[in-house]
Design a protein around this nucleic acid. Structure first.
Lengths: 354, 354
DNA sequence: CTGAAAGCGCTTACAG
DNA sequence: CTGAAAGCGCTTACAG
């Protein structure tokens, strides 16, 4: 292995000088620089990351902590992960993947090893024990998602308000007046404080009335099976529904299969609009889904960037909320059947929202 | 930060003794052990991973190198990744994710940093430049997948022969005599040497005749769109096909949609059997797919295990080939239409393969 | 069974 | 602008 010592000897300088040049931490004359750079090139020198980490107390490794047991690792999670890994690489950091429980004990254990400079937290609960752990250990971190209490916490997240607003506006504009939201299974303690469900539902309950719409929220677990079953309940309990918005991406896929099996034509009889989904997944159904596209690549990048800025002492990245944007497919269209009276009578009831 | 020095002082021993005990590398008397362990507990000592790495030349970090640009990161890849990350954690290793190109230049760059003990290679090409790089740098590695030349290379992979054999046997047993294989797009230089396509096709060409079947191989890129289009060609060129086996998981999903749009009933008119797919994906179609289930969790775990054994100098794990197993769904059934003469005439032509 | 000491390959005050 | 030296927190021959 070629060390800094070797380079210094060949260039006729001290190892300190090599280090200064390498890190651009002190000025070096052009002549010295040339000699050192030539020596490095000739020897094929590569700076040892471990030694650097020990001496500088900065490993340039960040961890992505995701609660493996509790959340399926779907397409969206994959987008977060790969974009975070790429963003880290671009900034000369490494990303390690830490599958940990939601309770923070494993996180404590891992952080104790001193291997990482900071942590990107995925699938954040409204009250997340991992946040407490990180704060107690004074470990820099950024959240992809948000706890309820946020003061001073670095985070990026989906803008659920804007996403739901855009989705409702789109459907309403097409003429839909019976729009149901399929959210999560809030009786499951794990998901009753899961941001995407809670925030989507809150946004829907606030926005739908502004459009003169009745609010109907259905609970549904995050699996294709559950999504399929939910559609049977929907048809039974809310037969006049013309459009369904659905939060979980797996359930959304199941809903299409479910409606088809129940003999409902999409989008002629009913429109389906997932609120959070990756395009790769949208292409999997027949017809291809119209979706609100999860900003996974953006958020993975932003979350990583927010963390690295903290680590480098740069200006902090302000919290960013990014909406899911409409990504056209073939499951949303104007309703064709007769409009329910109540809704029809409310046309124009939409409040101005300039 | 509590260091080994602090522990040693409080226990009244040298730091060497603490290290010996911690690593179980030299015997320590019960009395000494008790004192040291108490000191560690009282101080909340955690061994610093970076210092250990520098002194021992073993970082306990392994990298998963995946060619991000060239391969979609689908469900199967996610299964490999998460199971590898879990396996690493269980053995007290960390897994970093390296999105790298297929050509090995970035890999060289990253390996030079000395951060990882070894590499798990994903999406291995038959002739993979990354393998050359790893060998030249004498970096331990394990492949999930296989190059053509294998002597001495640690690897785990799908058992394509067994998988295709099982799939053909299953379909044949149900009465199918016109079984088409939809493989990859071999005109694309990147995929003409991609193991899953090449090996599936080779296995099919070898096995089908043993069952008295005519071999028909269709090319198809790895997207839902391509899978859909391939079905139009299939219906046109090979109208008497009763069953289709399809390698790529995205194309497989598209094929179901494509056949439906073309008015073919699945499985009444035609059976569909993907050769490599994750169950989460199989649930997405209507009807739900019968699949050969990719052994992603097994292979991710085995590949990681194979690498770690090399690193620890344990008995090497022999190369493992794991077949995809039949995972029942609703897209495979006995053919209902009239059997084509040629095939019918060959019944019983199956060679004995005891 | 235990310890003193060298060393892993860097970074970083400190001095000049 | 450059260098000598201490130190990061461990592991590991070597000696006893």
């Amino acid at each position: 292995m070629v060390t800094m010592r070797d380079v210094a000897d060949r260039a006729g300088v001290s190892i300190a000088t090599v280090s200064f040049l390498l890190n651009d931490t002190k000025p070096v004359t052009a002549a010295t620089r040339a000699r050192v750079e030539q020596a490095m090139a000739e020897l094929g020198y590569r700076r040892n990351a471990v030694a650097r980490a020990l001496a500088s107390r900065r490993t340039h490794i960040i961890a992505m902590a995701y609660p493996a047991l509790d959340h399926k690792f779907g397409f969206s999670a994959t987008e977060f992960l790969t974009s975070a890994a790429n963003a880290a690489r671009e900034r000369d950091y490494h990303l390690v993947l830490w599958p940990v429980g939601n309770d923070g004990t494993e996180l404590t254990e891992l952080l104790g090893q001193g291997l990482v400079d900071g942590v990107v937290l995925m699938e954040v609960q409204l009250d997340d024990p991992r946040v407490t752990v990180l704060q107690e250990l004074a470990t820099p971190f950024a959240m992809i998602g948000r706890t309820s209490a946020l003061e001073g916490l670095s985070h990026v997240d989906i803008d659920f308000d804007q996403t739901v607003e855009d989705a409702v506006a789109h459907l309403h504009g097409l003429g839909h007046r019976r729009i149901v939201l399929v959210s999560g299974n809030l009786t499951d303690p794990l998901f009753s404080t899961y941001g995407p469900y809670v925030r989507s539902e809150a946004a829907y309950r606030r926005i739908a009335p502004e459009y003169g719409l009745e609010t109907v929220v259905m609970e549904c677990s995050g699996s294709t099976q559950a999504g399929q079953e939910a559609m049977a309940r929907l048809i039974h309990n809310h037969p006049d529904t013309t459009a369904v918005m659905i939060v979980n991406e797996f359930a959304a896929l199941g809903s299409v299969a479910g409606l088809s099996r129940l003999g409902r034509r999409i989008p002629d009889d009913i429109s389906v609009l997932p609120l959070l989904m990756a395009p790769e997944m949208a292409a999997l159904t027949n017809p291809e889904l119209t979706i609100m596209r999860t900003p996974g690549p953006e958020l993975g990048q932003l979350g990583t960037e927010a963390l690295i800025r903290q680590l480098e002492g740069a200006d902090p990245l302000p919290p960013q909320l990014v909406p899911a944007k409409l990504y056209p497919g073939a499951t949303v269209a104007a309703p064709t059947g007769p409009q329910p009276k109540a809704a029809a009578g409310r046309r124009g009831a939409r409040k101005s929202r300039s």
